[in-house]
Amino acid sequence: MKEIEIKSVLQVYDSFDDLSKDVQDLMKQSIMIRDKAYAPYSQFLVGAAILLENGEVVLGNNQENASYPSGLCAERTAIYHAGANYPGVSIKMMALTAKSLKHKLESPIPPCGACRQAIAEYEQKQDAPIEIYFMGETGKVAKSSSLSNLLPLIFDNSYL
């Protein structure tokens, strides 16, 4: 047996104010759309803002349903909208933010596993990494230069 070590590399900014203006603007859009999320069951609001290579910004938020598997996360809402409405246009960057109506979230909240897999599909499809910035309601902001930092053992179509 051989043991291997897998590392993930993230950059962490102490605050929103430490981000570049372009990233701040995208994050502000994710905050705006987050606060419009439909989350009556979890009280957990998530917003996603995606910057496309053509300069368009696509927004998404989580949409819950009483039949829990029928809801959809903000990241997949946005990325599928981008894929449907801007086919062939690469995704440059994503800004994600989460807020709980039950308690304050001050640490970066990464995408869930299903969203990581969906983002991985788009990275592979466009053959280019997607920068992902994520935060809670306040506090530090994390940046991953590629989804592979968040999901190092990606399942992709090479296995099919």
Rank of each mutant, 00 (worst) to 15 (best):
P108G: 06
K125N: 14
D17M: 03
Y159V: 15
Y80S: 15
A114E: 15
E64M: 01
I6P: 06
S100K: 07
E53A: 09
K7F: 14
L45W: 04
Q24R: 03
S42E: 02
M32S: 09
A114F: 14
K104T: 14
M27A: 04
G88S: 10
Q24W: 02
I132D: 02
V141I: 03
G47R: 00
A114N: 12
L72Y: 13
A114S: 12
M93I: 15
K102D: 10
A120M: 08
H103T: 09
S15H: 15
S148E: 09
A118R: 03
P108Q: 05
G55L: 05
L72D: 15
I91V: 12
P111Y: 07
L45H: 06
D17V: 09
K143W: 04
S20E: 09
Q124P: 08
S15N: 13
A82I: 01
T138R: 11
C73A: 12
L19G: 01
H81S: 14
D22H: 03
T138I: 02
Q126P: 04
G55Q: 06
T138H: 09
I132P: 00
K2F: 15
K21E: 13
L105G: 14
H103P: 07
Y80V: 11
S30C: 01
T77F: 10
K125G: 03
H81T: 13
V46P: 05
A128C: 07
K36S: 13
S8A: 11
L52W: 00
K102I: 14
Y133D: 04
F44I: 04
V9Y: 12
S90Q: 13
G136T: 11
A78E: 01
A74G: 01
G71E: 01
L10E: 08
F134S: 05
M135A: 08
S70G: 13
P87Y: 03
E5S: 13
L52P: 02
P111N: 08
A142W: 09
G71V: 06
V46W: 04
P87L: 07
N61Q: 04
G60H: 00
L51P: 00
K92W: 12
A49W: 03
S42P: 03
A66R: 15
P87C: 07
A98H: 06
M93Y: 06
P87N: 05
F16T: 10
P87T: 07
L51F: 01
D156V: 06
L10F: 12
E53D: 06
I91T: 00
M32R: 14
P129Q: 05
V89W: 02
M135L: 09
E121Q: 14
M93T: 13
E106K: 15
D25E: 07
N157R: 12
Y86L: 09
L151E: 10
A48K: 03
A95V: 04
M93W: 05
R116C: 01
V12H: 07
V12S: 09
Q11H: 14
Q126H: 11
Y86H: 15
I79N: 01
S148A: 13
M1W: 14
A39V: 04
I132C: 05
Q117N: 14
E123Y: 05
